[in-house]
């Protein structure tokens, strides 16, 4: 049905987006929880920094990654010597798309943490539960629907990531050429219209699947406790 090249791009896209989401998930949860629960000086600045990938053109994010991590920079050169430089590798694509997905994930999770009535964690404290236990057994499970939808949103965003990826990881078929990048190349090639259309169709699958899966899981979590 699909050519090996198309399947390669699809599988690479899924691999990149999965890694981007899995690595971003704990960071997003920690940031969302920290922002929802704490008041600290400079919170506004941290909030603005978190939202940068949402408001600047993705190319700028890719460019910033490039000027800090490219092998031509001193930090990039050092990373290169220990074999961990992500530029122009699939790991680079994962970093770029993870960074772009992060603010979306944090926003959705933070709303969930903020929506939790404080009575549960207060009572849990009087019952003798430590701060970690209150987070792990109360706040985290109660925020689960928001965490799931945030994760799905992040995954979909990572699958669709284009600008930051092409700038930082480049467009190397079989290495960093994810579905959107392959679609872009096909559209640039004379006579590539059909291939472009097939790739566009292919882009829908992982994104739609992740949204449906998260909605289903979130509904299950809500039904168990009797609302929604």
């Amino acid at each position: 049905m699909f050519t090996p090249a198309e399947m390669e791009a699809l599988l690479l896209s899924i691999k990149v987006a999965l890694w981007a989401t899995v690595v971003s998930l704990p960071i997003a949860i920690a940031a969302a929880y920290g922002m929802a629960r704490n008041q600290f000086p400079g919170k506004m600045i941290v909030e603005a920094l978190i939202h940068i990938p949402l408001v600047v053109p993705p190319v700028v994010v890719g460019y910033l990654l490039l000027v800090t991590l490219a092998p031509s920079t001193s930090f990039g050169a050092w990373l290169q010597t220990i074999g961990l430089n992500p530029a122009f590798k699939w790991q680079g694509a994962a970093i770029a798309s993870g960074l772009m997905a992060l603010p979306l994930m944090i926003r959705s999770m933070r709303l969930s943490f903020e929506a939790e009535p404080h009575v549960y964690r207060e009572v849990a404290a009087t019952l003798g539960a430590s701060a970690f236990k209150r987070f792990w057994r109360i706040s985290l499970p109660l925020a689960l629907p928001g965490i799931l939808s945030g994760t799905a949103l992040g995954f979909a965003r990572a699958i669709g990531e284009f600008g930051a990826t092409i700038t930082f990881a480049a467009n190397i078929p079989g290495v960093t050429q994810t579905l959107p990048l392959a679609l872009y190349s096909a559209a640039q090639t004379p006579g590539g219209e059909l291939v472009a259309a097939r790739l566009a169709l292919l882009c829908l699958f992982p994104a739609v699947f992740s949204l449906i899966a998260s909605e289903w899981l979130a509904r299950k979590a809500r039904n168990r406790r009797g609302f929604g």
Partner: peptide, 20 residues
């Protein structure tokens, strides 16, 4: 002392059973 070290059972007015 933090509430978790006070051994005081506090049952507030609003529903407080963990819903999940």
């Amino acid at each position: 002392l933090k509430p978790e070290s006070r051994y005081i059972g506090y049952v507030p007015q609003e529903p407080s059973l963990f819903p999940h």
